[in-house]
Design a protein around this nucleic acid. Sequence first.
DNA 1: TACGCTACAAGTCCATCCAC
DNA 2: GTGGATGGACTTGTAGCGTA
Length: 255
Amino acid sequence: MANKENSQPTAKANASGSAKLMKPTGGTPKTAGKTNNTTKQVLADQNAELAGKIKELEARLARENAARAVAERAVQEADAAKRAAEENIKNMTRSDHDGQTDKLIPWPTTANMRDDGRGRLMRAMGLEDARNQYISIQGDVHLLCAQVGLDFRTKYVHQPAEVLSKIFKLARREHPYLKQFQNDWATAEITKQYLQNKRKQSNHKRKAQGEGNSSRCKTHSHFDVSGSESEEEAKSSEHGSGDENNEEDNTGKSG
DNA sequence: TACGCTACAAGTCCATCCAC
DNA sequence: GTGGATGGACTTGTAGCGTA
């Protein structure tokens, strides 16, 4: 980038400057002094211009170096946080195995969840016989999602860590039952599912509106031919500008 | 490079609510 | 009671990432 900008003025100077300046050398001695002065003037101008450019580039370099330093610091901090979280998880599982701490229900793998079939989340949460409790927890989590200002257009991993941890905290306070799930995975799963459905619904609505009005569907698949998703994609990728690194207590699974 | 895992989108099923 | 609307949950296919 800098190279490109750096090289441009030189080329320009060569084209407009030296080519013109070289010609008068064949002039008369009378005109030679005048040409010398003009040459000096032109060179001085170029010098000043280049000095200005250099200054500008130096300032830019300094800014970019500073930004780089900040980014590197952030990476180091994220790395340290990750290690701490991993250590934390190790300790949790170890003490879980020793039976020294509260019994924490570990985060089931996706594969495990897939094998479970219908009602797997309820089952995984140990609420297969307490559907009412599950519904109540789910309802409160959904409520909290709206209350803390969760952005439904944004993917789960891109949600701000503070928003998620707020949800987890409030959900635990509301339903102490949720405390037994390692890293609040149950709340996370409910939230994830909720977000997915919300995104899908809003996509669906948008598409339906874009289509005109023609569609009223129970099974919503057969009419969405128009593709107006790029906007949403752009939005969601905008949001994903690095928030996922600072999740407090929910990154345990992926790490 | 192959493999396993996770997250996501899209499609689909199912339960519930509500108007008729 | 029936059918549409709505929302939660599951399935499938795929992309990205880390690891052996």
